[in-house]
Amino acid sequence: MRIIERYDIRKLEDYIINIDQYRKELKMREYELFENHEPDNPGGGKSNLPTSTIEIQTVRKLSDNRYVLLSNIVSGVDKLIVNAKEDTKDMIRLRYWECPIGCYEWEDIADYFGTSKTSILRRRNSMLLELADYIGYV
């Protein structure tokens, strides 16, 4: 069984907390990749690059490490949320996005669900391990 370290927990939770920011960065990176400020063929001659715009876009996306990382993060968090059970979705919402008064600590969330802090933290760890698998976090 894999063990999740403290710094891994912080990073994976950051992905969940700031998912909207990561979506914006992904869109911005996509814009940067496809906005062409240089002439297509400045020296003339025939290029050996693919001529299909879809092929060109796919090659640019997959060859850019930042775009691939952001895409993995966004798709991983989205997949986690879609595949999560209702109580896990509530836990994510309460802890990371909509922190109502009295739900800032894990003890408060455990009280909300009527369980212990240890069981809530176990659920959190399993959720974060699932997210790590989805995004390829090593």
Rank of each mutant, 00 (worst) to 15 (best):
R2S: 06
E5N: 14
R6T: 15
D8V: 09
I9G: 01
R10Q: 14
K11S: 13
L12S: 06
E13F: 13
E13T: 08
D14S: 15
Y15H: 10
Y15S: 01
I19A: 07
D20G: 04
L26Y: 07
L26A: 02
E30K: 13
E30A: 12
Y31I: 08
Y31R: 14
L33P: 04
L33N: 04
H37G: 09
P42W: 11
G43A: 09
G45N: 04
G45S: 04
K46D: 15
S47H: 09
P50F: 12
P50V: 09
Q57E: 14
L62V: 06
L69R: 09
S71I: 03
N72E: 12
G76R: 04
I81D: 00
N83I: 01
A84P: 01
A84V: 00
A84W: 00
K85N: 00
E86H: 01
E86K: 00
T88M: 08
T88W: 01
D90I: 03
M91H: 00
I92E: 00
R93W: 03
L94Y: 11
E98Q: 15
G102R: 10
C103Q: 14
C103P: 01
Y104Q: 15
E105A: 12
W106R: 07
D108V: 07
I109M: 01
A110L: 05
D111F: 05
Y112F: 15
Y112T: 01
T118M: 13
I120R: 02
L121P: 01
L121N: 14
R122G: 03
R122W: 02
R122C: 08
R124K: 15
N125A: 14
S126V: 05
S126D: 07
M127C: 08
L128M: 14
L128N: 03
L128S: 02
L131P: 00
A132F: 10
D133C: 07
D133W: 05
Y134P: 11
I135C: 14
G136V: 08
G136C: 06
